[in-house]
Design a protein around this nucleic acid. Structure first.
Length: 469
RNA sequence: GGUCCCUUCGUCUAUCGGUUAGGACACUAGAUUUUCAUUCUAGGAAGAGCGGUUCGACUCCGCUAGGGACUGCCA
């Protein structure tokens, strides 16, 4: 990157709901680009719409970003706090002729919009070239007075050069009737004041970029570089919505995805570095450049996300995964004791190779948390014939005699037992597993026994053997 | 309707005028296997269409089709 000016990026969500996964990716790109260039990444809450902004939404955004591991450099800026500054800029624009008061009523506007649409042109206000009414303080908005000729070109870092004929750009409202600044004015002023050099945002703002560029010009400010990234679509190509299963980053957390996995997946979505699919934050920062982001909207692929998550699950710390897993189990109504936690932790190295999400991890751990006596499902029940009961009885005795209750030794013991019985493991495994887990899936038998411990294992076997059906 | 954007296997992508168009996920088949899962091997699978430019086009240009964004005193 050029050394002339340090890069400053920002993520600027409006607090009107949860943190959308598409927004999270935009935030990620901003952070990645800033870190890659050694610049700064800022957060600004766009709360100029007082009616729709809520404290809950602000909290949801903070929580979502924090969970995802996105950390702005410096305190977040609340846009509404700069309202006076925004009004002052508009005042200056008014005095320089870069803006004008518009006294159109709602009805006037509706009629004009209809006419403009019918004629295939941009909306125009008659007050643009008209003297103010006698009562200049009558209800009005302040509009930007943009050029009618020429064109505005946005050299978008992602989309390439995009040209707009100025006559197609309408005079947007800068100040509402109540004197409140609007988004399009506030972004320009704040981005300028915050020293933002690169505006990386959703491509739903591409059209606004041209109008905003005009405001920069009128103010005599140099505009930042723009990069409009496409939105994330659902698997069917339609805009991501509720019916696709998840929209908020919180949804993904609840579904058992790890933040580092989501970062990996989201970064790879719409951006690539050769054949690299799995990478950590340091690699992402070293490789990421906003110019390499794809133009086309990308679809959310659950299978791929699961695959990436499975990878990071295996890399994750066992104690951390145990905490996550027990939380899910607790939410399912299981009351877990310290013994359960200890067993889950001990089994975690093998459990985590068998799951794609924390939810599946909890499924895999359920054989541990069952309470004696276990209820056997029909299939497990059917395995307990007279023959297998007798064999199980002999196996239980062999198990009771061993003084080394470890995975490898238990494996040897079971194999030796099978040899002694003159049968294959297939004659022993299913029944033993059935009485140990009640029919729930579990790891290799020796690992299952080790995870349960001697007392619990023998207890479960004996429970089943003493139960007559 | 208008303005703007997008288009390589089902999906995410690599390719930056000359490749048998590569990888990953998913899928199919086989191997391994005491449940569930894993793992291993092999395989099928793409340049939206039509015109140009060029010795040569997935790569450049145009048109068409399809998808999307915006068109608010929301952001």
């Amino acid at each position: 990157m050029s050394e002339t000016s340090a890069v400053v990026t920002r993520f600027a969500p409006s607090p009107t709901g949860f943190l959308h996964i598409g927004g999270a990716r935009t935030a990620l790109f901003n952070q990645l680009f800033a870190r890659h260039t050694g610049g700064r990444f800022l957060l600004r809450i766009e709360d100029t719409d007082r009616a729709r902004s809520t404290d809950e939404a602000v909290a949801a955004i903070f929580d979502g970003l924090k969970w995802l591991g996105i950390e702005p450099d410096g305190e977040p800026v609340f846009q509404y706090a700069n309202a006076d500054r925004h009004r002052a800029v508009v005042q200056a624009l008014l005095e320089s002729g870069g803006a004008y008061r518009c006294y159109m009523t709602a009805e006037d506007l509706d009629a004009e919009r209809e006419a403009a649409r019918a004629e295939g042109r941009a909306v125009r206000s008659p007050w643009r070239d008209r003297d103010p009414p006698a009562d200049a303080d009558a209800p009005h908005v302040v509009r930007f007075k943009g050029p009618k000729d020429g064109e505005t070109v946005i050299d978008d870092l992602v989309q390439g050069p995009v040209r707009f004929a100025n006559k197609e750009l309408d005079d947007l409202v800068l100040l509402r009737t109540d004197g409140a600044p609007t988004y399009n004015l506030a972004v320009v002023v704040d981005d300028h004041d915050m020293g933002v050099t690169h505006v990386i945002r959703g491509d739903d703002h591409l059209n606004n970029a041209a109008r905003q560029a005009l405001i920069y010009e009128a103010l005599g400010w140099t505009r930042p570089a723009f990069a409009h990234v496409s939105l994330i679509h659902g698997p069917d190509g339609a805009k991501l919505s509720k019916r696709h299963g998840a929209q908020a980053v919180g949804d993904f957390a609840e579904m058992g995805y790890l933040p580092e996995a989501l970062r990996n997946y989201l970064t790879r979505l719409g951006w690539g570095h050769g054949d690299d699919e799995i990478f950590d934050d340091a690699q992402a920062q070293a490789w990421f450049d906003i110019k390499d982001v794809g133009r086309a909207p990308a679809r959310l692929d659950w299978d791929k996300l699961n695959h990436v998550n499975a990878h990071w699950l295996r890399q994750a710390d066992d104690a951390r995964l145990t905490a996550l897993t027990t939380a899910v189990l607790a939410a399912r109504g299981e009351s877990l004791g310290e013994t359960d936690r200890a067993r889950i932790l001990a089994a975690m190295p093998v459990l985590k190779t068998r799951a794609k999400t924390v939810l599946e991890l909890a499924d895999q751990a359920e054989f541990i948390t069952r309470r004696r006596p276990l209820a056997l499902d029909a299939k497990a029940q059917g395995l307990l014939t007279e023959e297998t009961r007798a064999r199980l009885q002999r196996l239980a005795e062999a198990l009771a005699r061993t003084d080394s209750w470890t995975d490898p030794d238990l494996e040897l013991l079971i194999k030796a037992f099978a040899d002694a019985e003159g049968v294959g493991l297939g004659k022993i495994g299913p029944a033993l597993r059935a009485v140990l887990t009640g029919g729930r899936p579990s790891p290799d038998l020796s690992k299952t026994l080790a995870a349960l411990g001697r007392e619990e294992s023998l207890g479960r076997v004996n429970d089943a053997l003493s139960q007559r059906t």
